[in-house]
Write a protein that binds this DNA or RNA. Structure first.
Length: 855
RNA sequence: GCGGGCGUGAUGGAAUGGUAGACAUAUCGGACUUAAAAUCCGAAGGGCCUGGUCCCGUGUGGGUUCGAGUCCCACCGCCCGCACCA
């Protein structure tokens, strides 16, 4: 008997696939195409077991679709620009470019042994000048179509390092290196006009039927369409009116103050002349720019002294406050506060002793607001207190609509639709990104670079020396020569834009570039027309909003510029979001009670816990958390392949956990997966050794199970139920190994089993196929089809419930009609006993499923 | 803080509103063996008068239904995102 040696067979079959070129994506008219794509990785240097799970899922789909007669495109590349490369250069010298390409080489070397059916000839990295040069061409086309513009926007400013910080570099409101309190500062930056597409991006979500509902909902909320009232408050002094926007105009009678953003023009004007207000506004600008930081910050306010008149009652004056929680980006940067029906406004009013005025009360419990705002759903009916539009009992939504109509009829306000979605700021004040291809000319202003000068490449050196990342700030900005250029317009001396692009730009069109990775235009319309759209996109839920929304915008913009056919403005037909791979964390404490983390391989598990292999010290086990290098709870795929082989790793990451959920990596689980594959290997040996003419018992039963397995596994793969498909394969393997059927039936069964396993364990399956005398490669063999005649049993077992609890079961022919089934059910002992001579109150018969008798 | 999701045996999990715990891990018992490993066979949610087709069981508390792990409401815990991490 032979032994299962994953190392031998995996290398062997990978060579065979290469030689046969089975994974090269080719266009042809005779087959339908199928484009499967996993979100491409950042080249951190090591592949992560989470990557393995992600790419294995995609590979299962790719291999399955190939065997069901599709031309499959399954590419791989690298999202290679971004901060980690600069951080590495800062931390240990070296150049971001070298670091990145070294990492890519290393990761490819780690991915190849996994046996993914990838067309490696299409691989590229976003930091290849070939790629980012085409991205610059796209930028210029967008610029020409008015899809890009410049405006001021706030950034995190480190006042000590005099540099812009990313959100993740702001820790507790302080710069990560200097420790200085971060400020919000305005800078002129480039923006994509994604908000012009708000309505369309929202409406088109309905068509994305094969996206998870939760992702569509998250995008809908992110785009945030709202209808409200825009109107103005007249000032009691000489100043002009203050425009406000509100989604709850029905609460106008409960207004107790008008709030303006610290960045509102009025606040800025006051800041210039009033030191007290300048101090306050400066205080508001402290801290990071994230919405989370703004929402969690202490709510601060300052009375400007300005007074405005209530639009419905000129004698009613309201104070104007500057408040730090009002965003200049949303609406008009000014609101009115209604504390009775908004918790934040209520907290603000209690803090600054402003009045609280109820405008409506609950029908069942009409009590005035104390310290909890009354905010019922807009669909709930409430009682209004002298509402100006004459409402009495009505829902919030009815009141909003009536108020807008009323204001429009009286001419003091307008119903307005607004979106939360802001334009996409793409400027980054960093080196390791795609340069923005424009120049600044004193004579001509901002001038686009000529396309024939693309790519505008990043300089590798500065003045013969490697670029210095030990100094804060953007090396391009202080580069001695790179900035100097001739104005494409007048030919005079000019300076390059030194901002580079957000890495989300890189990942917003790479999926199109895979269809023609070497084209000398951004896309090749023939190739894109054939391969697009992505039929199945697979990636993490953390990209549910930004990456996917930006890509949807980019596809539209590319279509407008003629780089994509109209059918591709929604580039991803189906989306699947997979879970993470997690692992327990092992911790001991040092003398100061600080945690010390340990790698899983350094820890020995015993009955009551775990201890360090080296010292025997007891280790605390923190259950299952996202893998991270700092916590050392990482599992290295390379180690797993060395120990068990790629097929085991692939099998394990798909089994046990549903793909959309997190999976816990355990050494025991990996061993168990390997044991099972060995069992299948041995089964193949046993069957191969049978006398080919040997008869046996139960051929028919084995075939029946085989066809059911084909049916269930096929359904499992098509519905991303990989764990269920694998459970089914376990069950079928158990059936086969106990079968006494004849040689022919068993051989047929093991070959079918190998095929059903082949998307998950392609090497092992290929080997079994060859040893059983299968024709050609299993990778190109057609997928087995279940014969429906074998799928239905003649009799079914029906559970009998009494009052919803299972009390008995009956076995009946599958076609037995309802009345007969009811008769049989009522005749059972359990039902007779429960009825105790009486008649049932009700009998529910669900054919083929269940009988419920209500007594 | 806001938006979205998840919660089932010791463990990972299965279950178109219809027999809760498929399949697997760990555990225990048996076979084989001088012994162990490997392999094979079997048991197994908890409880109790320890074989009764008995009671209790899907984070907690309510609700809808003939019937709820599944649908609705509230709460608790954990995870993801919040526009310069990718």
């Amino acid at each position: 008997m032979s032994r299962y040696s994953a190392t031998e067979i995996e290398a062997k079959w990978q060579k065979a696939w290469d030689k046969a070129g089975v994974f090269a994506a080719t266009r042809s008219a005779d087959k339908p195409k199928y484009y499967v794509l996993e979100m491409f990785p950042y080249p951190s240097g090591r592949i992560h077991i989470g990557h393995v799970r992600n790419y294995t899922m995609g590979d299962v789909i790719a291999r399955y679709k190939r065997s069901t007669g599709h031309n499959v495109l399954h590419p791989m590349g690298f999202d290679a620009f971004g901060m980690p490369a600069e951080n590495a250069a800062m931390a240990s010298g070296g150049h971001p470019k070298d670091w990145t390409y070294d990492n890519i080489r290393e990761m490819v070397a780690q991915m190849k042994p996994m046996g993914f059916s990838i067309d490696w000839s299409r691989m590229f990295a976003t930091c290849d000048p070939d790629y980012y040069g085409q991205q610059q061409a796209l930028f210029l086309d967008f610029l020409e179509k008015g899809l890009v513009y410049r405006k001021n926007a706030v950034v995190n400013w480190d006042p000590v390092d005099m540099t812009v910080l990313a959100n993740e570099q702001v820790i507790d409101g302080k710069g990560w290196r200097s420790g200085a309190e971060v400020e919000r500062r305005e800078l002129t930056q480039w923006f994509f006009r994604i908000s012009d597409f708000s309505e369309e991006l929202l409406d088109a979500l309905d068509g994305l039927e094969n996206w998870p509902a939760k992702v569509r909902l998250m995008q809908e909320n992110w785009i945030g369409k709202s209808r409200g009232l825009q109107f103005s408050f007249d000032r009691t002094d000489e100043g002009g009116p203050i425009e406000v926007y509100t989604t709850r105009p029905d609460t106008l009678m409960g207004a107790s103050f008008v709030g303006i953003s610290p960045d509102h023009p009025i606040a800025k004007a006051l800041e210039a002349e009033n030191p007290h207000i300048a101090d306050f506004v400066a205080r508001c600008r402290r801290g990071g720019t994230t919405e989370e930081a703004l929402e969690k910050a202490e709510k601060l306010g300052l009375d400007t002294g300005i007074r405005v008149k209530h639009p419905l009652n000129p004698d009613w004056e309201l104070p104007v406050w500057i408040a730090n929680f009002i965003l200049m980006d949303y609406g008009t940067g000014a609101i009115f506060g209604c504390p009775a029906h908004d918790q934040r406004d209520l907290d603000f009013c209690r803090k600054y002793d402003l009045p609280v005025i109820d405008t409506f009360l609950a029908l069942d419990d009409p009590k005035p607001v104390e310290n909890e705002a009354f905010v019922p759903p807009k669909t709930e009916k409430v009682r209004w207190i002298n509402h100006f539009a004459g409402l009495d009992v009505a829902t919030g939504q009815e009141a909003i609509d009536a108020t807008i109509d009323f204001a429009e009829a009286q001419g003091w306000g307008t119903g307005v639709t607004r979106f939360r979605l802001r334009d996409w700021g793409l400027s980054r004040q960093r080196y390791w990104g795609c340069p923005i291809p424009v120049v600044h000319c004193d004579a001509c202003g901002v001038v686009p670079e000529r396309k024939e000068n693309l790519p505008i490449e990043l300089p590798y050196d500065e003045g013969g020396k490697p670029i210095d990342f030990s100094v804060p700030g953007n090396p391009l900005d202080r580069h001695p020569t790179w900035r100097d250029c001739a104005c494409p317009n007048c030919g005079g001396a000019a300076r390059r834009e030194t901002d580079t692009m957000d890495t989300f730009v890189d990942s917003s069109w790479y999926f199109v570039r895979f269809t023609a990775p070497k084209a000398d235009t951004p896309t090749d319309l023939t190739e894109a027309g054939y391969w697009m759209n992505v039929d199945q996109y697979i990636g993490g839920i953390e990209h549910a909003i930004l990456h996917l929304l930006y890509s949807r915008f980019f596809a539209r913009a590319m279509h407008i510029c003629g780089h994509l056919p109209e059918k591709s403005i929604e580039p991803f037909d189906a989306l699947f979001t997979q879970g993470m791979v997690t692992h327990a964390i092992y911790v001991t404490r040092d003398e100061n009670d600080r945690p010390v983390y340990h790698f899983p391989e350094d820890v020995e598990i015993h009955e009551s816990g775990a201890r360090l292999g080296a010292t025997g010290e007891e280790v605390e086990i923190i259950p299952s958390a996202k893998m991270s290098k700092s916590k050392k709870n990482v599992v290295d795929p390379v180690q797993i392949i060395r120990d068990f082989g790629a097929d085991t790793a692939r099998w394990f990451v798909l089994s046990d956990s549903p793909p959309e959920r997190d999976v816990e990596w355990t050494a025991a689980g990996a061993e168990a997966a390997h044991k099972h594959l060995t069992r299948v290997w041995n089964l193949c040996d046993r069957i191969a050794a049978m006398d080919p003419d040997a008869g046996g018992d139960g051929d028919e039963a084995l075939l029946r199970e085989m066809h059911k397995a084909v049916h269930d596994v096929t359904l499992g793969i098509e519905s991303f139920g990989f764990n269920a498909a694998i459970a089914r394969l376990y069950a079928f393997t158990n059936t086969l190994s106990k079968s006494r059927a004849g040689a022919a039936a068993q051989k047929r069964a093991i070959m079918t089993l190998a095929q059903l396993m082949s998307p998950m364990t392609p090497h092992l399956s290929e080997d079994i196929w060859a040893r059983q005398g299968g024709e050609g490669l299993i990778a190109t063999a057609p997928w087995p089809v279940a014969d429906p005649a074998y799928l239905v049993d003649d009799t079914v077992t029906l559970p009998i419930q009494i009052n919803g609890k299972r009390r008995a079961e009956i076995s009946v022919p599958k076609d037995m009609d309802k009345a007969e089934v009811e008769k049989a059910a009522l005749a059972t002992d359990a039902v007779q006993r429960a009825l105790n001579g009486g008649a049932p109150r009700k009998v529910i018969v669900v054919p083929g499923r269940i009988v419920n008798v209500v007594v």
